[in-house]
Structure formats: C-alpha cells, structure tokens
C-alpha cells in the first residue's frame, strides 16, 4: 500500500509541472473573476466563497483523467489487478495520492486567493478548514469518474460530465461553511454535513470504482 502511494507521489512530482498546473489554474480563476465581475470589493467579498470553491472543483478536475489512464495504457493496471492487493485498496490509495498533490496544495494556497477576492477576515480559517474537510471527497468521487472512463480514448470530457453533478453536495456545503464563517454565523451544520459527504464517499466509492475498473479491464 505504502509502496503504491510513494510510487504515485514520485510519478506526480517527476511528471514535471503536472500537479503545479492545477494550482496555476486555481490562481487564474481567482484573477479572472474580478476582471469579469468588476473591482467592487463588496461584491467580490460576497462571491469569494463560491468562486474559491468552484475554482477548487475545476482545478481538481484537471488532473483526474490521469489517475488511472496512465496505468491503464502502460499495462500496470492489469498487473496491479493480478497482484495480491485488493483493487479497492488500489483505488483508495490512488485517490489519496491525487488529493495529496491537488486538494492539499489547493487548500494551502487558498488564503492567498481569498486575499485577491477580498474575503472577509473571519473567513480565512473556515476557508482552509472547509477545503481540508471537503476536497478529499472531490478526489475520491473524481477517481470513480476516472474508473468509469478509463478504457475510453477521449474520456476527459465525459469524465467531467459524470463527476461535476456529483460535486454538488460538497460544493454547496463547503461554500456555505465559508460564507457563514465570513459572516460570523453558526456553521456547525454545513461543516458536519460536508464532513459526512467526505466520509461517506471514502467509505463507499472505492468499492464502486474497483467494480468499474474490473469491468473495464475485461
């Protein structure tokens, strides 16, 4: 298990810029939105939680098509499937690796982007916490989409069509936490719901993804 995690992280780092691109994309969103909406700081402060969450979703989406596709193309996935480790564990480890190279850096970068979008001072802590609790779900849901489309030549577009509707609950609860945090309101309910979505997704989706990969390898 640990060997697979180390291998995936090493591959992500050596792929050169591969995982940095998601971060740059996240930055681009935070720069482009004010240019489109206008510099009014009150409006920006109001939409900042939503924009940051949508930006995180899209940045996460960028690298999803490579979670299984590379291993599928060079035959490693066949070999992993015949190795004495359950496919469910392979999926979980690969989802974790994906989160470590996308969701986690996004979370750490988010306060800087909050600054650009004029997020209220009270919101920063909750922004980091919400992304920390919510982004793991994005990786494991995304891995499910990647598992469904792994056998397809151009699965990237289909992948986003499949995955984005499933991001709705995380997006709603996550943005709500930040919004309420920035406004100084009680936010225990959306934060707990956000955590529940993440835990539920991690508990159940690896099984669905493993079933999808097995069907795709046949």
């Amino acid at each position: 298990m640990r060997a697979l995690l180390v291998r995936d992280l090493r591959l992500a780092v050596r792929a050169g810029g591969g995982f940095g691109l998601g971060l740059v994309f996240f930055l681009m969103v935070a720069v482009l939105v004010p240019l489109g909406v206008g510099p009014d700081s009150a409006i920006l402060a109001r939409i900042a939680p939503g924009i940051l969450w949508v930006g995180a979703l899209l940045a996460c989406l960028l690298s999803l098509d490579r979670v299984f596709a590379l291993d599928f193309e060079d035959g490693s996935l066949d070999l992993l499937a015949t190795a004495p480790i359950p496919m469910e564990a392979v999926v979980a480890v690969k989802s974790l690796a994906h989160w470590l190279v996308t969701g986690l850096p996004l979370t750490l970068l988010s306060p800087v982007l909050g600054l650009l979008l004029n997020l209220a001072p009270d919101g920063y802590l909750w922004l980091i916490l919400a992304l920390l609790v919510g982004t793991p779900a994005l990786s494991v849901i995304g891995a499910f989409g990647a598992a469904l489309t792994v056998g397809l030549k151009r699965g990237g577009l289909l992948l986003s069509l499949l995955v984005l509707p499933m991001y709705v609950p995380s997006l709603i609860f996550g943005a709500e936490v930040v919004k309420r945090g920035a406004g100084g309101q009680a936010l225990a309910t959306p934060l707990l719901l956000l955590g529940a979505v993440t835990l539920g997704a991690w508990a159940l989706l690896p099984f669905a993804s493993a079933a999808a990969i097995r069907a795709n390898l046949r």
Binding site: R7, R10, L11, R14, D74, G75, S76, D78, L79, T82
Partner: peptide, 15 residues
C-alpha cells in the same frame, strides 16, 4: 498464486 506477464510491461518511464 499466479504472476501474469502481459505484452505491456507496466513500466513507469520516469522511474
């Protein structure tokens, strides 16, 4: 108790 050796070797180019 099998090891499968396919056409593709499953090598990672950057490792």
């Amino acid at each position: 108790d099998v090891a499968y050796g396919a056409h593709a070797d499953g090598l990672k180019a950057t490792l």
